[in-house]
Amino acid sequence: MGLLEDFSSGLFIIQSVIFLIVLFVLHKFAWKPIMDAVNEREVTIVDSLNQAKLAKEEVQNLKAENEMIIREAKMERDNILKEAREIKERIVTEAKDIAKTEGDKMIEQARQSIQAEKAAAMSDIKNQIGALSLNIAESILQDKLSTDGAHNALVENYLNKSNLN
């Protein structure tokens, strides 16, 4: 068994030396690029996380800004609607006032027209009554003064009244 043990221990030493040589070569040529790649990947991941965080904050800011814009738009819409209602009410009120004024003018014109027509009718009636009264008086006088004596008595009566005045 001695030979097997010597061979095993020699093999172990050779394998250990080979392992140390491979470890040295890996450390010299491969370890640094691998570590650099790992470090670079870590930096990339950290940068990506930071960018994601910044993007998230920007999205939140945009969301808040959008909500503010929406609130302002709603307020502006409400103001415009309120102003439109006020304008509508003012226009309706003005139209009612104008219609009332025009109606009052028309009523006053109708009253004046009726008064003028009434005055004209009254004047016409007075003229007709005057003419009718004159015709009646003339007829009565003609009947009473058909004789010469009655005619002379009327003239004397009239003259006596004129002298008294």
Rank of each mutant, 00 (worst) to 15 (best):
Met1Pro: 01
Leu4Lys: 05
Leu4Asp: 06
Ile14Glu: 07
Gln15Arg: 12
Val17Ile: 10
Ile18Ala: 05
Phe19Tyr: 15
Val22Thr: 10
Leu23Tyr: 05
Phe24Trp: 13
Val25Glu: 01
Val25Pro: 00
Leu26Trp: 05
Leu26Ile: 09
His27Lys: 15
Lys28Met: 06
Asp36Gln: 10
Asp36Gly: 02
Ala37Gly: 07
Glu40Ala: 13
Val43Gly: 03
Ile45Val: 12
Ser48Asn: 15
Lys53Asn: 12
Leu54Met: 15
Glu57Gln: 06
Glu57His: 05
Val59Ala: 14
Ala64Gln: 08
Met68Ile: 13
Met68Lys: 14
Arg71Thr: 04
Met75Tyr: 11
Glu76Gln: 13
Asp78Leu: 04
Lys82Thr: 03
Glu86Trp: 05
Lys100His: 12
Glu102Met: 08
Glu102Ile: 02
Lys105Gln: 06
Lys105Val: 01
Met106Trp: 08
Ile107Gln: 02
Ala110Lys: 01
Arg111Asn: 07
Arg111His: 06
Ala116Trp: 06
Ala116Cys: 10
Ala121Gln: 02
Ala121His: 00
Asp124Thr: 13
Lys126Glu: 07
Ile129Leu: 11
Leu132His: 06
Ser133Ala: 12
Leu134His: 14
Asn135His: 13
Ile140Thr: 06
Gln142Ile: 05
Gln142Lys: 08
His151Pro: 01
Ala153Leu: 13
Leu154Gly: 00
Asn157Gln: 14
Ser162Ala: 15
Leu164Thr: 12
